[in-house]
Each structure stands twice: as C-alpha cells, then as structure tokens.
C-alpha cells in the first residue's frame, strides 16, 4: 500500500499514525496482520507490537520462531492469536483456552485449578529432530507452587517442560529427558521474568532467566520427542495447573546465548512499552 505522509512524501506500507507523531509511521506487514486479526485499536499496543516484530527481525530471531503469544488486548479473543500466523485456526497454532482464566491488559492469568491453553503445536510433528527447540514464557507472578508453566508430558521419556519455581525453590527444566529424570535442576527463588529453555544440540540444553543462563545440561539425551501438543500453564497432567500470569509465551528453534539475550531485550522493551514489565 502506498500512502503520503504529513510532508507529502510517498511511502510504502500502512499508515496507522500515532498520537505522538501525528501520523505517517509505517507498520511492518506481519505486525499489521496481527493487529488486524486481534482487533488491536490502542495506539500504544499497536506500536509495541510493531517494535517487537521489527526488533525480532533485526536480531534475526523472527524466522526461528514458530509461535509467539504476546497477550495484548486484554481479552481471550485477542490473547489467543499467534503473532507469527494470526489466523483463527488450529493449524496456525492459535491458542485454545480451557478452564478458568482472567484476561487483562497485563496478560492472561490462569486460575491454578482448571486453566490451561492448548497451542496445538506438537513437538514430534513440528520439531521431528532432537537437535533444536526452544520454549519459554514471561511470568509476572513470583510464587512457589507445584505447577508447570509451559510444556507437555506424555510419558517418562517424552517430556518438555519448565517448572519455574517448585515448592522446594528450584526450577525443573526438561527437554526430552536425560538419563536423569530432569534435564536441569537449579535453585530459583523468583518465578517472575522471561524463562527460556533452549536446546541447540543433543548435548546442549540451557535454561535462561531473562538474559542469564541459570542452568545447563551437556548430558546426551535419553528421551524422545513428545507426541501431544504443548500447553501453557499445564503439561497435560492433572495436578500441575499454574496460577502464574503470562504476559508472553513462545515456541521456536533452539536459540544461542546471544540470540536469547537479544530476545530478552526485545521482549522486555515490549513489556516496558505496555507498562507491565517485571
């Protein structure tokens, strides 16, 4: 689309305007597709989405992500959309919310008893090789509880999960298990922030909080790839419902340390623009 800005200059892109600029700003086409699908009308939210997409593209991370849930807009019908493919379809990995949730401008908070979201993204289908996957979410809640925040469990050897802060004040991270039941176990007394679990090879698994590595595993994998869809706020088992508020979640290829640091910068900028950073 061609438009003319306030200086009479021809520009390519979409002209949504902003209160601060008086109009004329261009919007990334992927950002605009999400804004349209999710009916995002607030200019600050529109700008935050646009900046997020452009930063992820600048950092070379955008193409490594398969599902991104920004939880912007404040309602279930807006929070369900995948930024990478904002069609209202299971095949687009649009979230299906189940049980009790509270949706607001700060994110989506499950009730800890029945609430979870189905991503429809199945690791064995979408990531059939074992050498690269990342999952993560942005928690706004610091609480110790027996819960799972993102992942799927289909058997002892088919597990992918981040249990951010168990009641023993440890984080348990699993990615197609090692010979030990858990791939990474390390102390963690703060379940708020961006938690990213990234496998970049069969012998390299890292758990990040924000941009810092808090746990690693170099043990050869002993498990196999889960065959059910990844969930948010649960791992498919009763007794693991989380009540931590999610303000962002994603699934993608394995991310390097540098990519994870850049990813955190982009996500934290996004949260700060929306006034909900932790």
């Amino acid at each position: 689309m061609t438009y003319f800005n306030e200086f009479g200059q021809a520009r390519l892109g979409w002209n949504i305007g902003t209160p601060s600029s008086g109009g004329g700003s261009t919007v990334d086409t992927d950002a605009q597709a999400f804004i349209t699908a999710a009916s995002i009308t607030d200019s600050t939210q529109q700008s935050a989405i646009n900046t997020l997409v452009t930063q992820l593209k600048t950092y070379g991370i955008w193409t490594k992500l398969k599902a991104v849930y920004p939880f912007v807009g404040g309602t279930a019908s807006q929070h369900k959309f995948n930024l990478k493919d904002p069609r209202d379809l299971d095949a687009a990995y649009r979230l299906v919310f189940n049980g009790g949730w509270t949706h607001s401008s700060t994110g989506a908070q499950p009730n800890g008893t029945t609430g979870y979201a189905d991503t429809k993204l199945i690791p064995s289908v979408n990531y059939p090789t074992v050498s690269g996957i990342s999952i993560g979410f942005y928690s706004r809640t610091n609480i110790a509880q027996t819960s799972n925040d993102i992942g799927i469990y289909t058997s002892d050897i088919k597990a992918l999960a981040i249990q951010t802060r168990w009641t023993d004040n440890k984080i348990y991270s699993q990615c197609y298990r090692d010979p030990n039941p858990y791939s990474i176990i390390t102390s963690n007394t703060d379940s708020s922030g961006l938690f990213t679990l990234s496998r970049t090879s069969t012998t390299s698994l890292k758990q990040f909080r924000n941009s810092s590595v808090i746990g690693t595993s170099t043990t050869s994998m002993g498990g196999s790839i889960p065959t059910s869809a990844i969930c948010l706020s649960n791992n498919g088992t009763n007794g693991s419902y989380s009540s931590r508020e999610q303000a962002f979640a994603f699934i993608g290829n394995g991310l390097s340390d540098a990519e994870t640091a850049n990813f955190y910068t982009a996500v934290q900028t996004f949260q700060t623009t929306l006034g909900r950073q932790v």
């Binding site: 279930a76 019908s77 369900k80 299906v96 919310f97 189940n98 049980g99 009790g100 949730w101 008893t113 029945t114 609430g115 979870y116 009763n238």
Partner: peptide
Amino acid sequence: DGVQYFNPT
C-alpha cells in the same frame, strides 16, 4: 463464552 472451553477436572 464463545472463546474459552469448560475443563471439568
């Protein structure tokens, strides 16, 4: 509610 599903547990 047209978007979210019951989850009997």
